[in-house]
């Protein structure tokens, strides 16, 4: 064990004794960050449960106005991006620079596709007056239930919006990783940034895995 503070290198920072200790610390740090994210989204999941429990029918009707095929396709896009991400991490574990760059770029593109589709969906909502606010109108619901439908769309926009914000941050992180990977920063010995960014990306994927059924798939058989 090194008794003195040693010189800082890109691979090993001065506060750590060994690279293993450093890698463990970074991984643990990212997992702790992810549980803060669980609690962050947890607040909205609670709101969803409470309001869906109070307004089951309005939620089913409002949910049926979402395009389930676009939602499912976007889920597939995001799962593909997780797959490419895990292959990028694998490339980093093996120290294959080309592989890392290739799969990170693919992940970035898929993330961009997801966000593009999301933007298209949001734009549709604006045209259909399904955005909460004074101009909100949901056809086929009596005036006294319009507010309840707004409640569903408030949750829809808050949840998908904050999820999209996490995606945007993820895209930023990916861009940074690609730039660094091209320079050859990462090797089999030092790939922690790729590894922990992968954890973040998969976590954002998991959030969507729950958002998709909760927002798009409520009692479809009633709505159609």
């Amino acid at each position: 064990m090194a008794s003195e503070a040693h010189a800082e290198t890109p691979a090993l920072r001065e506060q750590f004794d060994t690279e293993e200790q450093q890698k463990d610390a970074s991984t643990l740090g990212m997992w702790i960050f992810l549980i803060t994210e669980i609690m962050f989204f947890g607040g909205m999941f609670l709101a969803y449960i409470v309001y869906r429990g109070a307004n089951p029918l309005v939620f089913a009707v409002a949910s049926s106005s979402l395009n389930v095929y676009i939602g499912a396709a976007n889920t597939v896009v995001l799962l593909c991006s997780s797959f490419t991400m895990v292959l990028a991490v694998r490339g980093a574990q093996l120290g294959q620079r080309q592989t890392i760059v290739l799969f990170l770029i693919l992940t970035l593109i898929l993330g961009g596709v997801f966000l593009g589709v999301k933007a298209y969906e949001w734009n549709e909502k604006f045209q259909e007056h399904h955005v909460p606010g004074p101009a909100f109108h949901f056809e086929g619901l009596p005036p006294e239930l319009q507010g309840r439908a707004q409640l569903f769309f408030s949750l829809y926009f808050a949840m998908t919006g904050l999820h999209a914000l996490h995606m945007v941050i993820g895209v930023g992180i990916l861009s940074l990783l690609i730039w660094q990977a091209r320079k050859g920063t990462y090797s089999a010995a030092y790939m922690t940034p790729v590894d922990v960014s992968g954890l973040y990306w998969h976590f954002v994927d998991i959030i969507w895995i729950f958002l998709f059924p909760l927002l798009y798939l409520i009692d479809r058989h009633l709505g159609k």
């Binding site: 607040g43 309001y51 606010g133």
Partner: peptide, 28 residues
Amino acid sequence: PVLAVTIILLFCERVFHLGIFDPTRGGD
């Protein structure tokens, strides 16, 4: 993080007219 998301929802309600805590729209 739960405080953070609560503040975000408050922010969205004040700025973007979402209605998650608004009793006139069934919010609690």
